[in-house]
Amino acid sequence: MIKKLLVFSIFFFVFMQIKGQQKNEKFRVGIGYGFGSEFNNRNYTFTNHFYKAQLYYQFKESQNFRYEILVQPEINFGKHQLLNLYFVKPETPNFEQKRAEYLKLKDVHEYVLNIGFIIRKPISKYYSFYLLGSVGPLITDTETERMSKGFAFADVFAFGVTADCDPFRFDVRPSVRHVSNAGLGSSNAGYNTKNIEFGISCRL
């Protein structure tokens, strides 16, 4: 599946480059892949990997910085397990049954739309680094002791480094991510993860 996605993406980028009659420095399209895990925590484990489609739009440039909007649809595949059974308190309805259920290793799928803001600092003709903050709605398909099934939000803060090889740009992005539902569900402890992402994008 990953190989097919990479082959398709390369053909897509090449096609877009051949088709384009004029350079458009403001828009880029790309794909990203990343993985991570929870910060050390005695209550639960959470590991994840994810795929993103990416659309960049540079809306402003100053003498030292470039400013961009980034839209990223994402599919996130997680594995979660409760470690501390006392996290589910006796006042919780059917707490013994829920403890037994939550102690099982679970697959958690999230469908996310991230919308981010980038401040980029070029450091040479070919290299730049940037800060990224993003937030977006998501749907999760699995209930756990930390978060209810259904609607939630993902908040991401990242630092990235890019290398340009016109028309392509290669991206490495360490990030931290928080997922919760802002109190819209009965459980809202959420997940906190540290991640590393790799991406490639192409100028339209």
Rank of each mutant, 00 (worst) to 15 (best):
I123P: 13
V112L: 10
F151P: 05
V14E: 14
K26Y: 09
K19Q: 07
D164T: 06
P174F: 02
E91N: 14
S124G: 09
Q54W: 06
K52E: 15
F46E: 00
R66E: 04
P90N: 07
F168S: 02
I2D: 08
S62C: 04
Q97S: 03
T45H: 00
E61Y: 00
N24C: 06
G32S: 10
Y126T: 15
H80F: 13
Y102S: 01
S201R: 11
V172T: 02
S9G: 08
D164E: 15
F15A: 14
G30S: 11
N64W: 15
F117A: 08
G34D: 00
P167E: 05
G20M: 03
R203H: 09
D166C: 09
S201F: 15
T47Y: 00
E197V: 12
Y102M: 05
F50Y: 15
R146P: 06
N195C: 12
Q21T: 04
L55H: 11
Y67R: 10
S9C: 09
K4R: 10
K79Q: 08
Y191G: 00
V29R: 10
Y126H: 14
K106D: 10
G34M: 05
K3M: 04
I10T: 01
K60Y: 12
D166I: 09
V172H: 05
N48P: 08
I119P: 06
H178W: 15
T193M: 05
K98C: 03
Y86N: 15
A182D: 03
V172Q: 02
T140G: 12
G199P: 06
V7H: 10
R177H: 10
N192S: 11
S187T: 11
V7L: 14
F168G: 01
R66A: 00
K52A: 12
E38P: 01
G136R: 04
F27L: 06
A158N: 12
I2R: 11
N43G: 00
